[in-house]
């Protein structure tokens, strides 16, 4: 089983986002990949553990995105590819083209491909499309939003969650799957895993940027929803006040 998984380096902040002139201010931020992609990485590692073969993590981003590749290597991914940019933002069309070119090139070099995994959407731009575009470029079937997966006999049974339960899709491999958080619980990398990851060689490719739009004009913060908090009290003594509010809102069973 040959698995390639694509991740994207994004700024991670739990607090308020602040903006510089035209960018998210990342001076005080750490970076991560989206939770969906973390689960895609975990899934790739598990698939190779279960079926043998090898896994590769791929990202398009600045040189610093090597950190995110090393995180994936530390979790147990075998190889890493960096499609290195100068740090400017790439749109989904350009990103998908660079990724498909890189994957095609690998296949031309005789590397197998059974599964190409993506996150359902990236954490920053949330375009919901890079995986689908790559599937078209490579003429592969694609199931999105996968939250349960079984592989047997060259086929994937992929399920996704809907309000009333699950939808099931069956596709032949090779296939593109976009993964949703919840499919698994990603492992914490072990210390030896981290040490090994540090020493691994990362393959670097410099793709050509061909923007296709939409063209970003400006970023701005959504209007703050000021709810004007009313403090009901401190500790258990606040209970009667809380229940009064529950009645007022009309959520108490009568």
């Amino acid at each position: 089983m040959e698995v390639v998984v694509c991740v994207k380096r994004v700024p991670a902040t739990a607090g308020k986002i602040t903006l510089t002139e035209d960018e998210v201010d990342t001076k005080f931020l750490s970076f991560a990949v989206s939770p969906h992609e973390e689960c895609a990485v975990e899934e790739a590692v598990r698939l190779v553990e279960a079926h043998g073969g090898s896994s590769t993590v791929l990202t398009l981003g600045p040189a610093e995105a090597a950190d995110q590749l090393r995180d994936a290597l530390a979790m147990g991914i075998g190889e890493a590819v960096l499609l290195e940019t100068d740090g400017t933002e790439w749109d989904a069309v350009a990103t998908a083209r660079a990724i498909s070119d890189a994957v095609s090139a690998r296949r031309e070099q005789g590397r197998g491909l059974d599964l190409l995994l993506f996150g359902n959407e990236s954490a920053d731009t949330g375009d919901f499309q890079v995986g689908v575009r790559v599937a078209h470029a490579l003429d592969l079937p694609c199931v999105t939003g996968v939250k349960a997966l079984q592989i047997a006999d060259g086929r994937a049974v992929a399920k996704r969650q809907v309000g009333s339960g699950w939808e099931v899709f069956e596709v032949d491999l090779p296939a593109v799957l976009t993964i949703k958080e919840g499919i698994n619980l990603p492992r914490y990398p072990s210390v030896p895993g981290r040490l090994r990851a540090k020493k691994k060689e990362i393959e670097r490719i410099v793709p050509e940027r061909r923007p296709a739009g939409p063209e970003r004009l400006r970023l701005h913060l959504p209007p703050e929803q000021e709810r004007g908090v009313q403090i009901l009290g401190t500790g258990p003594e606040a209970a009667p006040k809380v229940v009064e509010i529950l009645r007022e809102i009309g959520v108490m069973a009568q």
Partner: peptide
Amino acid sequence: VVTRQRFGGSLLEDARIDA
């Protein structure tokens, strides 16, 4: 020009589409 959500809606982007 569209206004679209980023970061799940914690940030907005104005972008132009030319197609």
